[in-house]
Design a binder for these strands. Structure first.
Length: 269
DNA sequence: ATGGTCCCCTGACCGC
DNA sequence: TGCGGTCAGGGGACCA
């Protein structure tokens, strides 16, 4: 489900129910996620107050007085805030029960998501990550520097979290379409000016998607159950065979690093 | 270091 | 209705 806009929408949705409130306990029904949920999670979080709900890359960081809970939604993860004693359904793997009675519930059919404990608010998974795409540290010059000499396709490099975080399969294709760059082009064979356009396109696509609450393709919904409306703005993603919104040429689908990639063969070079 | 490929898991959908 | 194949928003672990 989630790229940066969906994770950010989730963060904003869950924050009010958490910040300033104490966690009563953690209920783990299915510890077998991407990595095992720590067996002693409840002991770490019970009785602690939530100071803040942050995000780094696609990780949600629930910051407590002592340590943080890290959550990742993987492909199919969904977080909702529910009333006390809400009925448990299939794939409801974990609850954080707040002292208010409300539940923060993780639902994740494919179990590619993760729930981890970071004692010092930091975690090895967060080291070595590239800049946030909506921060000042991300621009064309950064991309240019990081892609210099690389033969890998620019779309694959855009999705490499060591170069820039948060850009997943949907928004990588969309940003490259807006920048007019062929997703198969080698990263090292793109001019500085075109990297400027690409960085701007990444920012624009992601911030527009955040404004619209993300993209609902199949099962994604925000914590309040609302879908994301950015799907209506998608120019190429899952539009193979349909006319390009700019020139009418049929959109193509190819594979890059085993992931579907969509582009207009006329507008993108 | 870099660039491929494979895999974790469940569910939806499509053609036979 | 059932069955097998394909695909899916992530990303770490391997391999050469």
């Amino acid at each position: 489900m989630p790229e940066l806009p969906e994770v950010e929408t989730t963060r904003r949705g869950i924050a009010p129910a958490l910040i300033g409130h104490r966690i009563q306990r953690a209920v783990v029904r299915q510890p077998s996620l991407r990595w095992p949920v720590p067996a002693d999670l409840d002991r770490h979080v019970a009785g602690q107050r939530v100071r803040d709900v942050g995000r780094r890359a696609k990780y949600l960081l629930i910051r407590l007085d002592q340590g943080s809970v890290l959550m990742h939604l993987g492909m199919s993860g969904r977080l909702r805030v529910l009333p006390p004693d809400s009925a448990v359904e299939r794939h409801d793997h974990l609850d954080l029960v707040m002292e208010t009675g409300q539940l923060l519930r993780l639902h994740d059919p494919r179990r590619f998501g993760a729930v981890l404990w970071a004692p010092q608010h930091e975690h090895p998974l967060l080291t070595g990550l590239g800049p946030e795409p909506l921060s000042d540290a991300f621009d064309g010059a950064h991309l240019h520097a990081r892609c210099r000499g690389r033969r890998a396709a620019i779309k694959v490099l855009l999705m490499d979290a060591r170069i820039v975080v948060g850009v997943g399969n949907i928004y990588a294709s969309e940003a490259l379409f807006r920048a007019g760059i062929d997703p198969r082009r080698a990263g090292g064979r793109i001019s500085a000016a075109r990297f400027d356009a690409l960085a701007q396109a990444v920012r624009a696509v992601l911030s527009e998607a955040v404004e619209r609450g993300g993209t609902t393709l199949r099962d994604y919904t925000a914590p309040d159950g609302a879908p994301g409306w950015f799907r209506l703005q998608l120019a190429v993603y899952e539009r193979q065979g349909k006319p390009c919104t700019h020139c009418g040429t049929a959109i193509r689908r190819v594979l890059s690093a085993q992931r579907s990639t969509y582009f207009c063969p006329h507008c993108q070079r």
